[in-house]
Design a protein around this nucleic acid. Sequence first.
RNA 1: GUGGGCGUAGCUCAAUGGUAGAGCACCGGGUUGUGGUCCCGGGGGUUGUGGGUUCGAGCCCCAUCGCCCACCCCA
Length: 429
Amino acid sequence: MQKLKGFRDFFPEEMAERTHVFDAMRRVAKRYGFVEYDGPPLESLELYRKKSGDEIVAQLYTFKDKGGRDVALRPEMTPTLARMVATRANSLQKPIRWFSIPQLFRYERNQRGRLREHFQLNVDIIGAREVEADAELLAIGLDVQRELGLTKEDVVARVNDRRIVSGALGLLEVSEESIAATYTAIDKFRKVPDETFTELLSDAGVSDDAIEEIRKLCAGSVSVFEWFAPRLDDVDEPTRKAVADLETYLARMTEAGFEDFVEVDFSIVRGLAYYTGIVFELYDRKGKERAICGGGRYDDLVQSLGGPDLSALGFGMGDVVLSLMLRDRGLMPKAPPRSDVVVIPVGAELAVIARLITTELRRAGKRAETPYSPAGVGKDLKATGQRGIPYAVIVGPEEWAAHEVNLKDLRTGKQSRVAIDALAAEIKT
RNA sequence: GUGGGCGUAGCUCAAUGGUAGAGCACCGGGUUGUGGUCCCGGGGGUUGUGGGUUCGAGCCCCAUCGCCCACCCCA
C-alpha cells in the first residue's frame, strides 16, 4: 500500500515542521486580534460552481455521497467563509477579522510547491473599506515571515491595485474585448521572454504604443505614481482614489516597519477572478519558487454569493512553498520535541521507584519517561543520549537510601547528586 | 491534459547480460552503577509492477504504475 499521489505523510520530523509553521501563523494572527474559525472540509459542489471559475471546478475533488448529493473537498476557504459570514452577517460585529488554517484539496497533477493537498493560512477582514485594513492584512502576512526567521533579504511583497491597472488600460484605450487577455499577459510579464509578452498583447489587439507603456509600467522603469501624475486630470474618480490609496497604503506599511519588504509592481494582478482593489503576492527574493502568499481586496464577492453588501479582503498562504523556503534557509526544527528527562533505575528492584519519580516529575510539568524494561544503566543512558534528551536521572540504591538521585546533564556529561524534593526544579527546560 | 528525467534495503548509492552489494539507520551482543567515538553479529529486497528477447535480465525491448521537473492553469 502506498499513499495517494500528491498527498503527504507527516512522520514526526515533518509534523514538527508543520507544527512550527502553524504555531507561528497562529501567534501572529492572534497578535493582531484576529480570531480562529473553521468550516467543513467537505462542501456542496454547488458552493464552488457559483463562485469559482470553470478551471477551478475542473480541478475539484468531487464525488456523489451515499445520498446522491454532489460534494467536493474544499479547494479554497473563501466560499466557506462567505457562506458562514452571510449566515450571521447581521449579528457579527464589523469589521470581522478571522483566520483559519484549513487543509485544501485540488485534483491536479503535482509539481514543485504544488500538491493535491496543502494547508493554507487564510486571513480575512470583512466589513472594512479603509485602506488601513489592506495595510494591516499585508502586515500580518509579512509578520508571519518575520516570525519564522525570514527577513527583507529573503522575502519581497509585490503590491498593486486592480483599479490602477484598469485605469491605465483605459487611458491606453485598450478595448473591452482585449481586457481579459491583457490581464493574462501582464500576469505573465515576469515569466515569459520579452518577445512573447509583446506577442501576447499584440494578439490581444493592444496598440504598439500601449504595449510600450504597459511594458514600462511592468518593468518598473517608471513608477505608477510618476506615470499617472501628468494624467490625473484624464482619469475617472475611482482611478484617482486608487492612486491616492496606494500612496496611503505604502505610508502605512512604512509606519508598521515593513517598508523594506514592499515594492509596487504593476505586473501583479492575481489571476482574473474576483479582486477589486489592492492586491499583493509574497515571493522568495532568491529562489524561483512560486508565490508564498497572495491576496487582496474582493469587495463584491460576499454579495455575489447571495450575502449582504460587505467589503472584504484576505490572503492565502500555503504551507508547501513556505516550508521549502524555510528548509532552504535552515529555519526548520530538525527533530520533534522529546522528553526532558529519562529516569533510569540501577537494578530491577528500583524500577518501581523510577516509575514513582517519573510520575512526580510529570506532575511538576516535566516531560518525563522511564524504560518499560530497564536494560542497564549503560544501555539506557546510551539510548537516552542518542535521542537528544538533555537529562537522565539515575536512581541507585545508595543514593536512594538518602532520598537522593543522580541528575546527569547529557549535553555536558556533568552529574550531581540532588535531593529528591529538589529534582524537578533542577531540570531546566 | 502535454513533454522530459528517474525508479535497486528505511535513506544515499554500487553491481561488462553471468550467485544482488556497501555506507548510514535499525535490532542484538562486547558492558546487569554511567552514553555519544570503538569492536562483533543480525534482520531486512519478489531490483516499482506485468509481459517480451535470451541458455541466462537489476541491466536490452514494450506496457503500466509511482516520483521529480517543466508546460497549461492557479484558489
